[in-house]
Design a binder for these strands. Sequence first.
RNA 1: GCCGUUGUAGCUCAGUGGUAGAGCACUUCCUUGGUAAGGAAGAGGUCGAGAGUUCGAUUCUCCUCAACGGCUCCA
Length: 643
Amino acid sequence: MNSKINITLPDGTVREFPKGITPMEIASGISEGLARNVLAAKIDNEVRDSSRPIEKDCSFKLLTWDDKEGKSTFWHSSAHLMAEALEALYPGVKLGIGPPIENGFYYDVDFGDRAFTADQLPKIEAKMQELAKQDNTYVREEVSKKYAVRYFSEKKDPYKLELIEGLEDGQITFYKQGNFTDLCRGPHIPSTGKIKAIKLLNIAGAYWRGDEKNKQLTRLYGITFPKAKELSEYLEFLEEAKKRDHRKIGKELELFMFSEKVGQGLPIWLPRGTMIRERLERYMRQEQIDRGYVQVVTPHIGKKDLYVTSGHYDKYGSDSFQPIRTPVEGEEFYLKPMNCPHHCEIFGHRPRSYKELPLRVAEFGTVYRYEQSGELSGLTRVRGFTQDDAHIFCTPEQIKFEFQSVIDLVNDVCNKLGFNEYTAQISLRDPDNREKYIGSDENWEMAERAIIEATEEKGMKTVTEYGEAAFYGPKLDFMVKDAIGRSWQLGTIQVDYNLPIRFDLEYIDADNTKKRPVMIHRAPFGSLERFIGVLIEHCGGNFPLWLTPDQVAILPISEKFEDFSKSLLNYLEKHDIRGLVDDRAEKIGRKIRDSEVKKIPFMLIIGEKEQENNEVSVRLHGKGDLGKMKPEEFIEYFKKQLN
RNA sequence: GCCGUUGUAGCUCAGUGGUAGAGCACUUCCUUGGUAAGGAAGAGGUCGAGAGUUCGAUUCUCCUCAACGGCUCCA
């Protein structure tokens, strides 16, 4: 037996170590400081405890707080710490599962007959702090299934027993720290002492195993950090996110509203919000005209037959808003849940020549979908919304070019609106389960290759997910990052082989034979509602100058300067600058404050001196006084800011 | 849809088994002011809707609607 093993370090160098060395020992060999920071290690792509001996040649990486896997191990261990605290404070609690999540961790807990409310969280936090200070080691233990069953039978924990049932003997491990033992695959951080800052955030109900037929457990959410400072930064981040909440800003700036009488999930656009929405629409319409789209308008309802043909009736009919009936004939109509069937009818209404392809049919189509009431939220999840929808009918060979062209459009949209960072997800077939997809292998391969090549040639950051494609075709989804680092899914491009078949769409090719077109669904914004919701949070209500409802507030110092102010507004409007004159009998400080609160980008203060010299005093929102300018200088300055 | 929390003036929120209050906003008057809130007065509420218990309910109970936090779902 060779007692040495070769370990490949992240920089590619291979070093020899004695067999059975632990990652922690390797870390200590490098530096004590590093060893202190080690949370776990990655051995050949498997994340493991830093105390587990390495038995064979492998690639090797130490994981710290700076690694994603380091964080999730940290939070997983924190969930165990919380469970320990819960057992100490509430003897007899039953534990479900306690995984790490994107930001922190949770544990599902059955408190039995005890009522649990959020005001008990600080008590648990304090207990966790106390247990963390004990700096107990997380100890891994391999156990037999029989032993595991006996342990949790004695503990009377039905959830863990159910989990064990699904596990294979020989694969079962326990982790123990202090007085707490949990069924767990691991890995864990070295000891509880690494956890310095703890915050339990909220509680919610969650069904055991996500199934509503099962008992509902109490889910406790928390987050922890190795440094107190990081916790306070995270809490500040949450505060900032709260401040940017589009529901709050939408109310404050009077952009949109909801009404109980109109119905939940049905946003009502107020004048200021409508201005933003219409400008976005106008912008997109122009971009599309420039790119060879044709604009159409189709009705908000369609006969049941349309959706029987499209297949949506079978799939979603009973989960939709129920049909509207004509009073005399009893014909059934559905509110349209998407625009594509209508657009298929447009394509099919007369014979088409290959010379017409690609045919790009665009519509700002308002659609209605019955979303479960509990899922509705602000503008991001609604029951009625308008897509900047278009369907491109083309040949399989044209897919790649069309994809590139839509990618360019999305790129331009993101730049125009200040989303500087975005990635795309390519969703392809599940290679092991090709039967569930419609369309020929050949066409799928061509489309998948087209998407991959199109994104590569555009130099995009992408992630590829197998098995995430829709049954009717592969797709590309765009995720943007907002100003405080959150990711949102907005635009989408999807290939569709299904609808052209269902609607029996064809075109006459150059060789005078009938061919089936491919259809591409695409929406760069996704929906105007969701897009504006995300945009509000991205810019915190400070919209790009071209989009903001009022660009300039003219603030006369007293009513003596009202006429001059109004003629000034008139002058600006002639140069396509929109604004208002605040002619209330208020002091200038007050007018400035109110304009600042309304986030109007420019304020022009008009008093004695300005009127005499035909000047304006310019103040920038959030920045302050810029000094005096001639009106035409201001316009020039303004136009510069516009670009 | 499910679980939990919440619902009082346009907004943010106090409050009570004896039919309600603050700040801001609004209206009127005074103030004509120079870079983030001038002063005074006034008006404004079926205490989310419905039912019940009670002499009496905004308060207690039930039911319903909506918002929020999750779960589940998403053409």
